[in-house]
Amino acid sequence: MAGTDRTAAIMAGGPAIVLVEPQLGENIGMVARAMANFGLSDLRIVNPRDGWPNEKAVAAASRADHVIEAARVFDRVEDAIADLSFVLATTARPRYSTKAVRGPDEANADLRVRMEAGQGCGILFGRERFGLSNEEVDLADEIVTFPVNPAFASLNIAQAVLLMSYEWMRSGTPFGGRPRFFAPDMAPADKSDLFRLFEHLEGALEGTGYFFPPEKRDTMIHNLRNMLTRAQFSEPEIRALRGVIRALTRAGQTQ
């Protein structure tokens, strides 16, 4: 569509867009173009199949060079979101997770408030063929799903990013769905702090025989991580919890 004003300042910022194991460079480029259309600029790519940088991505980005050139590549989802404190996972499939599920308008209104309060936020998008795994959804705080035709709920990555990017920009306009009065009492901790809590607690429980029988270990870990993520602990709260775990571990060793 024509109508681009070449003299206008480039809008930048917004939540991080995290693509998990994208297959095609063209899709990454179209994601960058969608982000640029609506003022997003933080693109993070986890383990792209065809490597990075990618000439096909540059071509498909249609001059969204500032997004492509600033894109960062990570080996793991955990690394890509470690500096964020609030993360959404996009999915078209019902999950057995107990996380809150929002539509794109409500989710972006909440993101806007959180980011204006200084929180780092991001949105996970899954693979072209099967989206995000349950384990990856476990790393997020909430789920976003789109109000699509249930008989044909197939969106490609660029379409999904476009929808979320559009709602992000719309949330910044007057009466765009933002709550009038809301401010989190305590900012959630970065995901890196939460991941260390996971490792600390699971390591402590491992030595107690908690994960029994062995075939239920993955399900038990899934449930624990869901509970801990849903709480949205602050960094001081996580430090306090890790202190509790250390104290209990020492007490168990002296008995």
Rank of each mutant, 00 (worst) to 15 (best):
R6M: 04
A117F: 05
S133I: 01
Q232F: 01
I157M: 05
P213Y: 12
D138W: 12
H222T: 10
A61D: 06
M115H: 04
Q253R: 15
N27W: 09
E235R: 14
L84T: 08
L124H: 10
R239W: 01
D218G: 00
R93N: 13
R127M: 11
L197Y: 06
E215D: 14
I143C: 05
E199F: 00
R44N: 11
N226M: 12
A251N: 10
E142R: 14
R242P: 13
S85C: 10
P184V: 14
R95Y: 06
R170Y: 11
F146A: 03
G172C: 03
G13H: 08
Q23T: 14
Q159V: 05
R230Y: 03
L155G: 02
M115G: 03
R246W: 01
D218Y: 00
R127V: 12
D65M: 12
L19P: 00
S62M: 14
F152Q: 08
T91A: 09
P48T: 15
F198E: 09
P104R: 08
L132N: 13
G203I: 04
I143R: 07
G3E: 06
V73G: 01
Q119F: 05
I245Y: 01
M186Y: 01
R114M: 08
S171L: 06
L162K: 02
G209E: 09
T90Y: 02
G39W: 03
D50E: 15
Y96E: 10
L124M: 11
S133E: 10
E26A: 12
V20K: 03
K99R: 15
A80I: 04
T4E: 07
S165G: 07
Y210R: 13
G14T: 10
F146L: 05
D185W: 01
L201H: 06
L132I: 11
R76E: 15
P179F: 12
F38A: 01
A34E: 04
M35I: 09
G252H: 03
Y210W: 14
V18D: 03
V87N: 04
E202D: 12
V87M: 03
A32Q: 07
M186N: 08
N226K: 09
F175D: 14
E21F: 03
M169E: 13
A89R: 11
A60M: 15
R127I: 12
P94R: 13
L248S: 04
F181E: 05
L163R: 02
G177V: 05
E167R: 11
F130A: 11
K99V: 09
A59D: 08
P53V: 14
G243C: 07
R102E: 11
V148T: 15
L197S: 06
H200E: 10
E142S: 06
F212P: 00
R72F: 05
L84N: 09
F74V: 00
Y96G: 07
G103S: 07
K56R: 15
R178Q: 13
A2C: 00
A189T: 02
V144T: 06
P174M: 07
A117K: 13
T254V: 13
M186G: 00
D190W: 05
R95F: 04
Q119C: 12
A9D: 14
M1E: 07
R170L: 13
N223Q: 14
